[in-house]
């Protein structure tokens, strides 16, 4: 009976996409369409609610929880220094963040399989290019920082070293003392990807992560003294990965712990701060 339920999708969670400015509903709908056994679109009483991560997203989460949602997916959340306390406010609701690069499936694989060399890196250099009509460059830097965190790197300091109308540079340190450099620049040639280079004494790791809506795979390569190891590609967008993570969390009862590091990142990269020493 269970197998039949799975086949006809009756184990699927009901989901509602809450229309909002800044939320690309079509992209979410398209991702949900690739998960017909996990999700089934429903109306007001849905078990899962997808909300926009535009300012005020914490209130949207609270509102969804009040209507009985068991899970909320926050699409592209903006920095929120008070996010860490949100989960305690809605204890019966699982919150999962769907972030531009931080939710990329390759990042989790790299964090697991390259954990030791990541810990030995002395330099973490993140670079991306943002289209003219894209996010603010500080928002891009925040997304880079979140990707670095999701590699398992504890970031203890970060400061904006330079900021121009066309580019931005942030520098800091990891808990292990590695230099962290994050930079973003504007150009219409942007393909939305993030280029991450980690350099250690005897290894380098390079990751290319496609943007949140793309199914185009990323690439992760560890090079050591004698060989190289490339992780298998995953033809899955970060958004689909987040939807699956939410489904798994609700199915298994496993809590998520994204909000703590998200909050740390928001505090590190204070959106209101000006350039400081690097």
């Amino acid at each position: 009976m269970t197998a039949l339920n799975a086949l006809n999708g009756s184990n699927a969670l009901t989901v509602r996409v809450e229309p909002a400015a800044g939320l690309r509903v079509a992209a979410v709908t398209a991702a949900l369409a690739t998960l017909p056994l996990s999700y089934r679109e429903a109306g007001r009483d849905a078990e899962v609610v997808v909300v926009s991560g535009e300012p005020g997203w914490d209130e949207r989460v609270r509102a969804a929880a009040r209507t009985g949602a068991r899970g909320v997916l926050v699409k592209d959340p903006v920095p929120l220094p008070t996010a860490a306390t949100l989960q305690a406010e809605v204890p019966d609701c699982v919150i999962v963040l769907a972030e531009t690069w931080a939710s990329h499936p390759l990042l989790r694989s790299a964090a697991e399989q390259f954990a030791e060399p990541i810990g030995r890196a002395h330099l973490i250099d993140a670079r991306s290019v943002e289209p003219a009509t894209g996010r603010s460059l500080r928002a891009v830097l925040f997304a880079q920082l979140r990707a670095v965190q999701n590699l398992g790197i504890g970031v203890v300091s970060l400061a904006i070293a330079a900021e121009t109308p066309s580019s931005i540079l942030g520098v800091g340190r990891s808990a292990s003392g590695a230099r962290i450099a994050l930079s973003a620049a504007r150009s219409d040639t942007s393909d939305g990807s993030l280029d991450l280079l980690l350099v250690g004494r005897a290894e380098t790791i390079r990751l290319a992560l496609s943007d949140s809506g793309a199914v185009r795979p990323g690439r992760a390569m560890l090079t050591s003294e004698a060989d190289a190891h490339e992780l298998p590609t995953a033809w899955q967008s970060p958004l689909r990965t987040s939807l699956l993570a939410l489904h798994d969390a609700l199915s298994t009862g496993t809590p998520t712990d994204q909000l703590r590091e998200f909050t740390e990142a928001a505090v590190l990269l204070d959106p209101g701060a000006g350039p400081s020493a690097g």
């Binding site: 121009t164 450099a181 350099v199 250690g200 290894e203 380098t204």
Partner: peptide, 22 residues
């Protein structure tokens, strides 16, 4: 690791000698 503003334009450079082969 070096970051500079040159006439207001961002120049960022990293260089490292390592034991890895690539």
């Amino acid at each position: 690791e070096l970051g500079a503003l040159v006439h207001g334009r961002l120049v960022h450079a990293v260089g490292a000698l390592t034991e890895q082969w690539r």
